[in-house]
Design a protein around this nucleic acid. Structure first.
Lengths: 160, 160
DNA sequence: TTGATATATGTAGTTAACTACATATATTTG
DNA sequence: CAAATATATGTAGTTAACTACATATATCAA
């Protein structure tokens, strides 16, 4: 396997490489939805899938759940509202909160996606089923980082 | 380990999760450079490191090497030129080409970064040294995708 | 029970990559 | 060797996330 400088730099360029792989998969994701003739954008996935599984959520709890900053969630919600895939209502006990849920159109779309997801899960399983499993590796690294951040670890090595 | 909906969706949200992890590491990367009092941005890494290892390259070959679209490279080069870390000259045999290289200031900066990189490599080795090694998993997945794209694999599963 | 603090949402502007298009020069081919 | 094609660079505009700041409401504590 010929190696370029970035790949050869190994651990130094880990962030760049994660992003590159993410982009690559996302682009193919969009093409898969197109091939199935489904009007769906990969960036909608975290919000819509979470609402599909949890039915009703406030903006901040949704943001926490998907791991996005809340303004990112708000702009996605704005777009999804325009698409009539979600709707909002006020929380009666805490008037600051806006509760978000799928519309019937949204629920229908998500239900129609089940077969596409099945295919995506299979294809992903296929590509990650290597000696070192990518999903497991991500889980493990995230758990490790939760214990102690990258920054703190780097600082510890510095002092040695 | 409590799981949120996105993590639980596993293979479906792989692109989102890769990106999230990349962002997290990049942000800590910036803080590490700051802690070492080095005026360096993580986004500069691919270009500068490649020029450090390969000395002189054209815009397109550099873009290919780091895996970026060429306009992205051009805007990074513009910024690095303003910082006086790189300079360009015309290729004498092919006048279309612009050859890019590190300035003395650029070389000095990169040399000063060696100790920081050492720490980053150690910290990264620490977090990726789990049962499934993240770097190896990325290498394996990229190799697998090179053989046959995600889209083609998904389409193959569809037809079954 | 009011003043301080915390939480929820929203807006504005930034960033770091991208795609689409344009132009100049090189290379290939009939 | 001229026309067609390919390659190299550049510009303009887009995208999908972010941070910083603002405001309204809720909760807590003196």
């Amino acid at each position: 396997m010929e190696q370029n400088v970035i790949d050869a730099s190994g651990l130094l360029a880990i962030s760049t490489r994660l992003q590159r792989l993410s982009d690559q998969i996302r682009k193919d994701g969009l093409l898969i939805y197109k091939a199935f003739d489904i009007d769906f954008q990969p960036k909608w996935f975290p919000v819509l899938y979470t609402l599909y599984k949890k039915s009703t959520m406030s903006v901040v709890s949704l943001s926490d759940e998907i791991g996005y900053a809340h303004p990112s969630t708000i702009s996605l919600l704005k777009e999804l509202e325009k698409e009539k895939l979600i709707r909002s209502k006020k929380d009666k006990t805490d008037t600051r909160k806006r509760l978000v849920e799928l519309t019937d159109k949204g629920k229908e779309l998500l239900a129609n996606m089940e077969p596409v997801w099945e295919v995506i899960v299979k294809a992903t399983a296929e590509i990650t089923n290597t000696e070192n499993n990518l999903m497991k590796a991500i889980n493990e690294v995230e758990a490790t980082l939760k214990e102690k951040s990258f920054l703190l670890r780097a600082e510890a090595h510095r002092k040695k």
